[in-house]
Each structure stands twice: as structure tokens, then as C-alpha cells.
Design a protein around this nucleic acid. Structure first.
Lengths: 185, 185, 185, 185
DNA sequence: TATGAATGAGAATTCATTCAT
DNA sequence: CATGAATGAATTCTCATTCAT
């Protein structure tokens, strides 16, 4: 599995061959099939393990929380932990989050450039808000990426739901979350 | 290109064959190669067109904005538009955002379940915050998806940067954006 | 046909496409088929024309010859003419004589090196004969190539004959031609 | 490799498919690629082995030769051996020497006829020389093929040289070799 | 348990040829 | 006469999977 993680991380699912994996593991090709029924199986196992990791971190926030201090502490701890896991397992993270990015360098560049460009556009929007005196002095690029992520994840979640809520309502809620934040006043 | 969009949307990049595409388009296989050099080329063209669409919407926010009212109006307009585009081109969106989801049904389910589970976990966290009297009464699931998206997009952006900023700082900024929102008080 | 000669000469029969030829000729692809039934046809026509050229030169030797002087004169004239044609139509010559040489650079090098090496080996043999006082002071490399050509052409001719003569006899005759030459003494 | 030799010998390089070869060898198509990276590779290996064979024979002439008798003996031995190899490996020989002859029956006939016609023309020239009392009573057809081979090989060698010698000189040398032979008097 | 040679279905790509305009 | 878009058969090469040793 270690070999598979390295190889998939390097080449992506499709470009990686069972040969690559067994060679990296220093075993013969047949040995692979003693432990996995199919090529997909290792891939699933790897993805699953990463996702479980992320889920566990999320679940840790609410455990044994009683006071506001504890709660905010846990939130920060979980967020830090999440970033740590992404960095430590960054190959697995990229593999999980966007198999196609390893499809080939050109597509990878296409997407990277897209996100950078879009983030810059949004950062400009945010800077304008700050200049207009409407927004706090946040870091525009981080905030831009955050907004992009918010929108794409919420939009994709809606695409999968059988009876999605009224888009207009969702947009209002999202904007309120982005503008007003969560904290009660 | 319409045929390719349908076929890629249905099967994903790898599982879709040029044969599938030309059959869907009602032309012979060779005809494909009169218009595209490679299979990848159509795929790129499709992805590019979708991404450009999204970028254009983002750029529209700041155009001809003078007053706060105009600014917030534009923000909402853009957000609405973005959701509309995601829904209208949902096949293209899914194709662009997660090629691997179309790899096969099992992986698709794996990822969908992951996001749903994770969102529920985070929604519970948010509900706890509300119960503790710390948070406003937001929609917990929408907010949960928003948080997931924020974190994953920011984390992935950092993974690609050659000299990423101190993670601790980024986390603080993210939490402040999530808790306090953008609006100046 | 001029365009075809250039293109075939450049790329060889198989690597040259009808598209290449028509593009070189500045006409549309369909036009090709107004003048030739198949791709092979132009190729044949080109090869045929070159071969006819060579045959005509050979036939010119014996025409209107009466005296020994005339005969030797014609021989030299024909030989000169032959070399001139090979040089002038060298692309066609190479095309005719070894289509496979244009197969790809690697095979071309393989064969060129072979002939050069073999000629050097034979040239050494000839030099030894000169040193032993057995041979006249001929140009060893030219003579070497001549010997190679003699043997390969005679051998190939025999391979095609249905009732080939006794190889031993052929070899004897060849050696006598090489050693003693043609001229009566 | 045996199967490949047979198939290439039968159909020529281009007309032979990897399928043909593996079917002839009684193995599956994929097996081919366990032993060769590309189709060209087997072809090269076959050609190379034949050429090495020929080169070795040429090199054997000068080995351990001290007396004129030994020298002439070796020459005859090598020539005999050469013819033997051509006959034994005639498929390989034809493959090596003229891939295009196997292009298709029509071209094959075209070239065969050309050589036969040309040889007849040259044989007539030689007969005339004999009748004129200028030449010895050699076998006109063998001598004709020898002359054709001499000229074509020398001409092609010159075409490949970057600074070819003066054609006039080469022609003189060739004629002298053909008329006077090698042996010193 | 481990091996690795063999398999063969499958996919991308090419290009000679056709034919409606 | 000329065009060039469309065709689709054909070919090379890949690689997940099997199985006898």
C-alpha cells in the first residue's frame, strides 16, 4: 500500500500500472493479486483511509466539549490538524481530491492556472470591498480561495441532492455566512 | 463537442472512447481527428470553456461598481449566476471538478458518502455552537458544506505554492473569516 | 509527379501520404485520384521512368558500333551517363534501389554503416593483394564497392532464377571476371 | 524471431503485422511486446544478424594469409561461402537487400523484369565485345549482372558521401577494373 | 506464499479512398 | 475539372489479470 500510494501519487490512478506498483514494492506482479482482487481495490483503500482521517478530525471537535472556550479551542485544533494532514499526506490528498490533475501536466497546469486566476479576480473584489470601507482587513487571497471553495463545494453538493433546496435561498445563506460570519452578536 | 460533453459527462474521461463520442455525434471515427488532434484536446476544450465561464462571472462583480449597494448587489448577482451555471452545466461541472467521480459508480458513492458524512459531522459541530449560544441560527448543512469547501480549497492551494505561508497563520485567518465574516463593524 | 517524386524521395513510399503529395503539388486531395487510380500508381510510374532511363543508357552502347574504338568509347560514354543520371536523380535512385532506406533514420544508418564497414574490410583484402604483388594499384575503396555490388547483384539474380546454375561455377566465373577482367590478351 | 523472419520474408516489413508474426509463432499478441519494444526492433535484429554474417565472411579472407596461393584460396572460399549464405538465408537476404520488392507482386515483377532486361542488354554489349575480339569468352549473363551490381553499388556509395570524388575518375577506375581485372601482369 | 511469462480484449490513431458539391 | 469533408478498415501497442510452477 505504501508503494501504491507513492506510485498513484506520482502518476495518478490511470497512468499508474500494477507493474509500477509491484516494482516499487519489490515484489512480483502476481503477488499483488494475493492481496487485492483488482487494481481499483488498493486505490479505494488508500482514498478511504485518507477520507476517514479527515472525518475523524471533524468528529473530534464536538467530543467532550462543555464551555465556549473548549469549543473554540477544539475548532482551532481541528483546523490545524486538518491542514497538517493535508500537508503530510499531500500526495494522497491531491490523489483523492483530483485524480485528473495527475492525468497529464497540461491539464494540471490548466486547472492550477484557473484557480490562481479566479482567486486573483476574487481577491480584487475583496480588496474593492475593503477600500469601500465595507469589509475588514482580511488576507484577500486566503479569503478568495475560501470563497471559491465554499461556492464549489456547496454547488456540487446541491447537484447530487435529489430534492435540492431553492438556489436563491442557498445563495442568500452563503452570502450571509461569508459577510456576517457565524458568531452571534 | 456536444456529443463529447455528453459522453464525458456520462462516463468520465478515461472510460469514454473516441468511438463513443463519434457514435453519439453520428459521424465516423475518423471525422473526430479532422477536428481534434487527440482525444485529450476535446476534453481540454470543454473544461476550458467551463472554467472561462466561471471566471467571467467572478470578474463581473467589480465592473462598474461605485456604491456599497451596487457592490452587494453585484455580489449576490454573481453568486446567483454561479449557481445557475453549475446547475445548467452540471455535467460539465462535475466533469471539471472531479473527473474521478465518474471513474466508476463505487468510487463515486465512496466520495459522495464521504462528503455527506463529513457535512453531517460538521453540521453537528455547528449545531453545538448554536446551542452553546455562540453562533447565529444559520442553516447547519449549507454552512457545513461551505466550511468543507473553504478548507479543502485553501489547503490544496497551499499545497501547490512553492513557498506556502505559515499554516498556523492561515488557519487563524480562515477561522476568523468563518466566525466573524467579512463585514466591517 | 514532380511533387510525388520529391515527397517519396524525402519520406519513402510508406511514410509519404497522398495528403503530403497533393499539398506539395498545391492541389486538393481529390485531384490526385483524377490522375491516378491508387497511391501505388504514381510510385510505379516514377520507378518505371527511372529504370527506363537506365535501360536506355545500357542499350545505347551497342547502337551503331563498328570499330573497337567506337565500342570502348560508347562504354565509357554510357558509364559516364549512368553516373550522371544517378547523381541528377539521386532521390529517385535511392527510392528505386532501396525504399526501405527511407523507412527511418535508424535503419538507414544501419545499412550505410554496413556497406561502409564491409567496403573497408574488402579494401583491406585488396590492399593485401597489392602488397603481395598480386594486384595492380587500383583504388581499393572503389574496387571494394564494385566487388560488393557484383556479388550481391549476381547472388540476388540467382535467387530469382527457377533453375539457377551451379553456384561453384558462378563463383569461379565471378572471380575470373574480377581478377582477369574482360579484355582479351 | 524465426516466425518474424518467415513473415517478413513472405510479406515484407510493412505488409507484415505483429498479429501475423505472433500467429506464426503460436503465441498471443501481447507476448511479442515482452521481447521487443516495437515492431521495428525484430526487423532490425534480423537485418543486423544477416549483415553481420556477411561482414564476418568478408573479414575471413585476410586472416592468416601468407602466400599468394593461400590468398586466392581464401578469396574463392569466401566467395563460395557468401553465395552459400545468400542461398541458405535467401528470405533474409531479399528482405535485407530490397524490402520494397516485397511491397507487392507488381512492384516485385517490375524490378525483376528491369534487372532481367537490363542484364540482357548488357549481355548483348558483352557479346558484341567478344565478337569484336576484344573480350575473353566470359559468361555474358553473369558478367552482365556483375557489371550492373558494380555500377549501382558504387554509384549509391557515392551518393551517400559528403565529398564524393570526381565522377569521371571513378568511371575510369571502374572501367579499368572491369576490363583489365585486378591481377598484375 | 511468491513468481513472472503469457494472455487477449481493447483503445487511439492513421490514411487511402470516395463522392456530393 | 477541382475540391475537401467524411469514411472506416486496419494496425500498433498497452496492461489488468491469470495460472502453472
Amino acid at each position: 500500500m505504501t508503494a501504491a500510494r507513492d506510485v498513484f501519487g506520482q502518476k495518478g490512478y490511470h497512468a499508474a500500472t500494477v507493474d509500477d506498483i509491484t516494482r516499487a514494492a519489490g515484489v512480483a506482479k502476481g503477488t499483488f493479486y494475493l492481496y487485492f482482487d483488482e487494481k481499483r481495490e488498493v486505490y479505494y483503500d488508500l482514498v478511504r483511509s485518507f477520507l476517514q482521517h479527515v472525518k475523524d478530525i471533524g468528529a473530534s471537535v464536538a467530543r467532550e466539549v462543555h464551555t465556549p472556550q473548549e469549543f473554540f479551542g477544539r475548532c482551532e485544533q481541528a483546523a490545524q490538524e486538518l491542514v497538517r494532514v493535508f500537508i503530510e499526506h499531500h500526495k494522497l490528498a491531491r490523489l483523492t481530491y483530483r485524480e485528473s490533475m495527475s492525468l497529464d501536466p497540461e491539464l494540471e497546469r490548466l486547472l492550477r492556472d484557473f484557480y490562481r486566476d479566479l482567486a486573483r479576480v476574487e481577491a480584487d473584489n475583496i480588496r474593492m470591498g475593503i477600500e469601500l470601507g465595507l469589509f475588514r482587513a482580511v488576507d484577500p487571497m486566503i479569503c478568495a480561495y475560501a470563497h471559491i471553495g465554499m461556492v464549489e463545494r456547496v454547488a456540487l453538493a446541491l447537484l447530487h441532492e435529489e430534492s435540492p433546496p431553492e438556489p436563491r435561498t442557498v445563495v442568500r445563506e452563503l452570502l450571509s455566512i461569508a459577510f456576517e460570519g457565524l458568531r452571534k452578536r
